[in-house]
């Protein structure tokens, strides 16, 4: 129980940083050459980065980018992927064939390569990063949803609904998706972490956020160059990212248990 509250507290503060960050009197971009890589002081509780900017201020303003990018990308990918996959699995036939081949084609490439290609065509900018990552991210969800649907579509309640003349979309939405949501949610929780990391990679190639805007990924990337001499630059955003990923996974786990009727019944 403690674990869940802890995770919830972390995620709430992440969301709070993202939402009220712009209202705080922060100076994430103020360079001070005297303070390059300096440790914590009264002005900067977490120390300074490689050009003397306060790390705490950057952490808070970077939370915004990481939060919105990961939430949006994962949300779009989950909704789109689950719907496409479940419908293809349920309808079957030619539709399923075409969707499966498209999924195969997407999976044949390393995901990040496609994202880079897409982001390259769309041009730099955070909105384009979201579009590029979502248009690749849905594939995993679609494959999972399709496989789960195939095992469910012969179940009695689905057959009954079909006999009663319910439309395929309604069957998918009301009778199949609730049953396959648990693995999809777990997949989504893993997705959040990988999106934050992928965003860092794109920023590195000049396709994501542009300096001096802070994002956790770019902070980690910049910090790794100075691991030997100023490890706090990478530890601060690294620990923040670790806590978020851990919390999301913990909560995802709890959510899955809660959604699973069998565990709830046995617990009750």
């Amino acid at each position: 129980m403690f674990k869940s509250w802890f995770a919830l507290a972390i995620l709430t503060s992440w969301a709070a940083m993202a939402l009220i960050g712009p209202l705080l009197p922060l100076h994430p971009d103020s360079v001070d050459l005297q303070k390059i890589m300096a440790g914590p002081d009264a002005q900067a509780w977490l120390g300074y980065d490689d050009v003397g900017r306060p790390l705490l201020d950057r952490l808070i303003s970077g939370a915004r980018i990481s939060f919105f990018v990961s939430i949006l990308v994962v949300a779009i990918s989950t909704v789109l992927g689950s719907l496409i996959g479940a419908l293809a699995g349920y309808v079957g036939g030619a539709v399923d064939f075409v969707v499966s081949r498209v999924i195969d084609i997407f999976l044949a490439f390393p995901g990040i390569l496609l994202v880079i290609a897409l982001a390259g065509i769309l041009g730099p900018g955070i909105d384009n990063v979201i579009i590029a990552m979502s248009s690749v991210g849905w594939v995993g969800f679609a494959r999972l949803a399709r496989a789960q649907t195939l095992s469910l579509k012969t179940r009695d309640h689905v057959q009954a609904a079909r006999v009663l003349g319910t439309k395929p979309l309604t069957i998918v939405l009301r009778h199949i998706l609730p049953l396959i949501s648990a693995p999809l949610i777990v997949e989504a929780t893993f997705g959040i972490a990988s999106v934050v990391i992928a965003e860092a990679g794109l920023s590195f190639l000049g396709l994501g956020v542009q300096p001096p805007t802070a994002s956790w990924g770019s902070m980690i990337r910049d910090g790794t160059a100075y691991m030997l001499v100023a490890s706090h630059i990478v530890i601060v955003p690294g620990v923040a990212l670790l806590l978020i990923v851990l919390s999301v996974n913990l909560l995802g786990d709890r959510l899955r248990d809660w959604l699973d009727v069998r565990t709830r019944l046995s617990a009750g």
Partner: peptide, 16 residues
Amino acid sequence: TNVPFRVRIATIIQYQ
């Protein structure tokens, strides 16, 4: 270029 050291210098010049 995206060489981290060059980006650092550019960030400082941008700020100044």
